[in-house]
Design a protein around this nucleic acid. Structure first.
Lengths: 255, 255
DNA sequence: CGGTATTTTGAGTATCGTCAAGGCCAGTGG
DNA sequence: CCACTGGCCTTGACGATACTCAAAATACCG
């Protein structure tokens, strides 16, 4: 992990973009940029962090350590997300770098002081938390899907819409979007409540159906978003089952 | 639904318990008590509510309407929980009464004005949201369990710890706790990503194992909390395998 | 270019979902 | 007061899906 002595580039981060110059300047004064490499631990479970963080580039994962010692991912943090439990208490999970990542860190004490001085900053922080709450609820929707393929479809859609807006806009082809899965199959399995093998099979099933394309296990091109949307929310529609059957039958006959 | 002209009993609700008298008084002035009967709609999906609510007695459920018209429960609101999207935007889900319920409602505009005047209130609201975020993450943990019985165990534990602290304290027998499931099997199935039949079977399996006892389908007595905890995290008898691995050397693997 | 970790595939088993039927309780009307 | 009706929970049998174990293929890294 490397740190720069200078404050980090606040202006670019969504939470601070619209802050008054005076506040922005004070923020910069108490901030520093920290870089982590994939796999490094940013904060431990139960730790009361000495700083409030805001993710720049890259992805962090939040994970809970279960009684039996295994680790369970409970969410991802992406650009603009803040962490560190403003205003109180220790974390209820550990935070690790899922990819190489840059984090803008504010010393906790000065940050909380600044929070009381600046309603704008406070509002911005509150909105950020509200946003995270929405995302957590969205996750709940995804996780309460019964079929693995539905959960994967939901996950991929979340990657497009909430995680990678910039990249999503510049789809390489008409209606196609490239996304990068920021974690391994094993981690993805934990996140979605499944196993690596099932994840792999479901992903390849989506590919066989023509909804997506896998250049590498981590580089996914989404070819038919509408189909994924249908898949993510629903599974009963006979259309999918029919298509699967048609596909299987087609293969058997032609093969 | 009935409303009283007088402000509701704020002092008892956790979010407002420790507020200065001056703020508390102003809050009472802009509040009113609303009662809903089980099944009534409190707020619609996409609505920007005219009031901020705080749950008194009873349980509300948050539910999302899927494209196909079915409804999917994304969470429950219990005593002390606030709702109504302070500071911005419309709801992303509908709110209905799961049981008969009393809600303390504040007119939105005055409430937000008061929010800016009172840092204590603002802090209290923020902590409330933070709390909800934690709960949502807890839900994610429960929902990412692969077996229905694990998810049910986690749900029951959540009922004890977060929903029914008062009742949990006065267990009728040594180590036993009574909880009330506030929603139907069908709703529970939606919430946990399963089906009513599977829920029923899993519940009866827990009863057969002796961990719980069902007086009625909604009245559950928890006989062995430790067993439920074990069940809610992991249940496969892998514990031995894990322990062996831990003994040999706990080398940390990176994603 | 080899060595290792990760992903993928295959076969067999367990769990869950689906369909259909029966039981329990509450509210209704004779 | 009792039969009837509808809703919900429960149970059983069967099919679909996902998990487990084991092995092969691929990607990653030096």
């Amino acid at each position: 992990m490397g740190t720069t002595s200078a404050g980090c580039e606040l202006a670019k981060l969504p939470p601070f973009r619209d802050l008054p110059a005076s506040v922005s300047k004070k923020l910069a004064d108490i901030s520093r940029l920290i870089r982590y490499r994939a796999g490094q631990t940013v904060a431990h479970d139960g730790e009361k962090t000495s700083f409030i963080g805001c993710v720049g580039e890259g992805v962090l994962r939040m994970q809970k350590t279960l009684p039996d010692g295994r680790q369970h991912i409970v969410g991802l943090l992406v650009e603009g997300d803040m962490f560190g439990r403003v205003l109180d208490g220790p974390l209820h999970f550990a935070i690790e770098a899922a990819t190489d990542v840059s984090v803008c860190a504010f010393k906790r004490r000065p940050f909380e002081a600044l929070l009381e001085q600046s309603p704008e900053l406070e509002r911005s922080v509150l909105l950020n938390i509200l946003n995270e709450l929405d995302r957590a609820r969205h996750w709940m929707l995804i996780l309460s899907q019964r079929k693995v393929s539905s959960r994967i479809a939901g996950f991929l859609l979340m990657l497009c819409t909430e995680l990678d807006q910039a990249a999503a806009a510049v789809g390489p082809e008409h209606g196609a979007v490239d996304v990068t899965i920021p974690i391994s199959r094993t981690d993805l399995a934990h996140l979605l409540g499944s196993r690596p093998e099932s994840i792999s099979r479901a992903l390849h099933a989506l590919a066989d159906a023509g909804w997506i394309e896998m250049k590498t296990p981590y580089q996914i091109r989404i070819l038919d978003i509408d189909a994924l949307v249908a898949q993510s929310g629903e599974e009963d529609p006979i259309s999918i089952e029919v298509l699967e059957e048609l596909f299987r039958g087609d293969r058997k006959r032609t093969g």
